[in-house]
Amino acid sequence: MSAYLRRAWIVVWKDVLTERRSKESLNALLFFSVLLLFIFQFALGPERARVETALPGLLWLGFILAGVLGLGRSFLVEQENDCWEGLVLTPGDKSAIYLGKLAGNVLVMAVVEAALLVLFPVFFGLDLTGALPRLVVVLALGTLGLAAVGTLFGAITAQVRARELLFPVLLLPAQVPVLLGAVSATEIVLAGQPLAEAAQWLKLLAAADVVYLVVGLLTFEFVLEGA
């Protein structure tokens, strides 16, 4: 394992340990997801057909809202625990820290998404098992794009005024392609069609992921400089 990857890994490991001890973010996020299900249910009413047509949008609405809360916090933790200086003073390429933070965020998002995917069928009486393997592909591509921009913007907004407001205001317009692509692909997958039908959307998501990831890796060092 090269030194670069090891440094990224240390960041992931540190975050996982902190989270395991305090459990402050993940518990709240999971609880938030359950609340979302309630709200969706109240908003749509008991009619099954309505839920089914709206399901791809609802799923991603849930992921995005959880992402706005979770990703926005990822660097705030460093700020609150006075670890920012430590990150800034870390020797070597700063993009390793970005990669580590990104991996940690993808992990958190994956847990929340898994929870929602278990809860949705239970609460709405749906069966997603058949579509699950294909759905995972869409989820992975969409989540990576969301987290790549969210991690970068989270690092920026952690150090500015009105961050809770500014983070979604910056993130959501930038995520329009990911949202459109992911919702459309999810729609195709949940309709029982093979992944090839959604190929165009998967290409779009993959290209978006590459672009966001490269921009994040390149520009992160400018964000992390002394505040």
Partner: peptide, 8 residues
């Protein structure tokens, strides 16, 4: 990316 996503 925005351009293509909305177009499709």
């Amino acid at each position: 990316i925005v351009h293509f996503s909305v177009k499709w």
